[in-house]
């Protein structure tokens, strides 16, 4: 099976172009319309948030989006349905699900992986399952060709980095700051050093996120990373101005990212 993530990062590499990763919350507003519009707005990879009642690693923006989505009736099945609907018109843009352990555990890791594969999902970021605890989940995902994407952070020292990148696939998500999603991003030069370190240890592309809100920030990060992730700002735009506002923001962020010189 061709992994859309590997293909996409290989393409970006061939063009010498940093990638833009757009995060959105499934079930918040007309999320299907936003999801379908993201590739044309310049998203190279999509992170699709799975809402959870207790998002303890998220700041106010994504917390709010999760609660609105749950209020509107979004479920894990519903997330898969949105991904499957997206795949009817797009077979190239990778979808990475992002969320918390309990709903996945409740569905059963094997069941989750099977349904994710069927829905055309390419990867998973599970915030609260660190490498020490992810063996069972990883095996289930591997069996269904879903990449397990791990997070590296400023507290991940060299001793620990080996554990973090071992068995990770697709790309590594570097969290640029100690804090929750939407908090201020880290110092750009330090991010550059960290990206180099993580890339060397993992041999994988490194995407950088947490706290990137503006085209200027996106460009500065893009000059130092393989990809830039924006979440809270897109979620805010969606909440305040709907699909149109979110798409406009993604266009400006992705243009700034793609224009950066590496």
């Amino acid at each position: 099976m061709t992994n859309r993530l590997t293909t996409r990062f290989n393409e970006l590499d061939a063009y010498g172009r940093p990638g833009f990763v757009a995060y959105m919350m499934a079930g918040d507003g007309d999320s299907q319309a936003l999801l379908n519009a993201l590739p044309n707005a310049g998203a190279d990879v999509i992170e699709l948030g799975m809402p959870f009642t207790d998002p303890m690693a998220d700041g106010a923006s994504i917390q709010g989006a999760a609660l609105r989505a749950l209020e509107a009736g979004m479920t894990l099945q519903g997330v898969f349905a949105q991904a499957a609907e997206f795949r009817k018109a797009n077979d190239t843009t990778p979808i990475v699900l992002m969320g918390y352990a309990n709903p996945i555990h409740h569905m059963g890791f094997e069941n989750f992986a099977r349904r994710a594969e069927k829905a055309g999902v390419d990867g998973l970021i599970c915030v609260d399952i660190p490498p020490e605890e992810d063996e069972e989940l990883r095996k289930a995902l591997n069996a269904h060709g879903i990449a397990l994407i791990r997070l590296a952070t400023p507290t991940t020292d060299d001793k620990r980095l080996g554990t973090v990148v071992e068995n990770t696939s697709g790309f590594v998500y570097y969290v640029s700051t100690t804090g929750v999603t939407g908090a201020g991003s880290g110092v750009v030069t330090e991010v550059g050093d960290a990206v180099a370190r993580v890339r060397a240890a993992s041999g994988l592309p490194v995407a950088v996120g947490f706290g990137v809100r503006t085209p200027e920030q996106a460009k500065a990060i893009a000059e130092r990373a393989d990809a830039v992730v924006v979440g809270s700002a897109i979620v805010d735009a969606m909440n305040e101005g709907g699909v149109e506002a979110a798409v406009e923001l993604v266009k400006s962020l992705s243009a700034a990212t793609h224009g950066a010189k590496r």
């Binding site: 609260d128 660190p130 400023p154 991940t156 973090v164 100690t178």
Partner: peptide, 20 residues
Amino acid sequence: ARGRFGDYGGRFVAETLMPN
């Protein structure tokens, strides 16, 4: 040694907190 009581317990935290 993994902080498990049978199948329960463990260390299910975000990576930022793991070193702590």
